[in-house]
Simulated assay, not measured.
Amino acid sequence: MPISRIAVGSLAEASQPEALKATLAEFISMLIFVFAGEGSGMAFAKLTNNGSTTPTGLIAEAIAHAFALFVAVSVGANISGGHVNPAVTFGAFVGGHITLIRSILYWIAQLLGSVVACLLLRLATGGLETSAFALSSGVTVWNAVVFEIVMTFGLVYTVYATAVDPKRGNLGIIAPIAIGFIVGANILAGGAFDGASMNPAVSFGPAVVSWTWDSHWVFWLGPFVGAGIAALIYEILFINQSHEQLRTSAEY
């Protein structure tokens, strides 16, 4: 069972060069992702007089986030695993693929990367606002929680299928492409309702810089629940069963 493989790790892990390099890679990947993703929304709003709230703006943001995440995951994959998302890190932790100590390092780096990206955007744009995630009119917090759970489930399930599953083979750049595509598609599905975060760090940076915290907890609860469910389902139904079948076959 995945729960049996959950590991806390040791404090010494936090000072290991390999862990520090991986943490730095997560910081840089998150900075790249948020700067490009959040920046694209700011640019589109400036060019079209707040046209980012139109269907065209939603499509533009979906494409920008898909491309940016593809790059961010690709450049970090060989160093940190290219999580670029605290929810993805949590899913890996639930499945026993990363220790709690390493997860905490990643979470700190991811949150800082998002904040720094938003600060750089504010500096580079002469003080333009980095808009915090917000719920659309008529969308309740629990509507948004369901959206975030389902969208993040799809994201983390994709991560497991293309990047974590030991049977995946050599997929090369397929994993980052698939991860970028599912995020882009989810933005098209949920962007008009709650912004389609799927990533607590992506929500955290703009919230800190703009100091806007309305319903912010939604963008933590939903992604973490969705990530945990996806990790457990994939581990129990596909990874563990495959290992059990291999052991059984080896006995004959």
Rank of each mutant, 00 (worst) to 15 (best):
P2Y: 13
P2M: 14
I3S: 13
S4R: 15
G9V: 06
E18C: 09
A19N: 08
L20N: 10
K21I: 02
S29A: 14
L31H: 07
F35D: 07
A36M: 12
T48Q: 02
T48N: 02
G51A: 04
A60Q: 11
I63F: 12
A66V: 14
V71S: 02
A72Q: 02
V73A: 08
N78F: 12
I79G: 01
G82Q: 01
H83M: 01
V84E: 04
A87G: 10
G91P: 13
Y106F: 12
V116D: 05
L121S: 10
T125S: 15
G126H: 13
L128A: 13
E129T: 13
E129L: 14
T130V: 13
F133K: 07
L135F: 01
G138E: 07
A144T: 06
E148F: 03
M151P: 01
A163P: 08
V164I: 15
D165F: 00
P166F: 02
R168P: 08
R168Y: 02
G169I: 11
G169P: 07
G172F: 01
I179V: 09
I182F: 00
N186Y: 03
A192C: 09
A196N: 06
A201T: 07
A201S: 07
A201H: 11
S203N: 04
G205T: 03
P206Q: 14
A207V: 09
F224Q: 12
A227H: 07
I233P: 10
Y234C: 10
I239E: 01
N240H: 00
E244W: 06
S249P: 00
A250Q: 03
